[in-house]
Amino acid sequence: MKVKENLMKYIFLLCACISILAVVIICLFIFVNGVPAIGEVGIVKFIFGTHWKPSSNEFGIFPMIVASIYVTAGAIIIGVPIGLLTAIYLAMYCPVKVYKIVKPLINLLASVPSVVYGFFCLVVVVPVIQNLTHTSGKGILTTSILLGIMILPTIISTAESSIRAVPSMYYEGALALGATKERSIMKTVVPAAKSGIMSGVILSVGRAIGETMAVVMVAGNQAIMPNSITSGVRTLTSNIVMEMGYATGMHRDALIGTAVVLFVFILLINICFSLVVRKKEK
């Protein structure tokens, strides 16, 4: 009996360690393969080089870094205000009957596969932008709209739950002092929910920067420095997915180097996230 108990305890422990092992192995594979490639190209040349021409051994991923940052920023600019105000509506204004319909819809939005988003954007948003700007329609603006929609559920659900967690005394106190409903929300409830809202924003930055398949379809994928809001760009993620299939040798290692840079971005975002969450717990 005792033996069985102990045996199972170690089996449980072993399983718990698998996730540690997974992170270690993934990091090892990506860094061991990618870092030497970055070293070979030269770290400055790799990160700040503006030419990506694998055929002539030029591996500069600066355009991709800039593109990733641009589309993520665009997604935040579009997604955060809409998401936050929707969350305020859901938490403070929405009648129960409407809520029962809208909330599941938003949950559904969260689980729509990214290819479906990409497809939708390709056949609906791209032609509209094409007509409005007389360009190819694929580029920073379209990608930002796409990612802005994709991060909505994350922003809405985190913001809504943190707004609901604010004690109602704050809101009632402000009302009692004669502030209008909107003023009470904006000046007392939202500031009190700030760190929860921030953690939602950081989560969606992670999602936007890591999104791949939908972005590949609508970003245009030119590996050059963007010069306007409608110019086609290639993000870090799409660089990997587009060329990994046929890349060999140095080219493949440079792509893994791209993943290293992406990984570092994600780790930074994770650190920000846990800092915000820890601050909230205090």
Partner: peptide
């Protein structure tokens, strides 16, 4: 580590 694992983009999983 589980939080890190959850934050890794799927393309990095694919690459791994």
């Amino acid at each position: 580590t589980t939080e890190t694992l959850a934050g890794i983009p799927s393309i990095v999983f694919g690459l791994f």
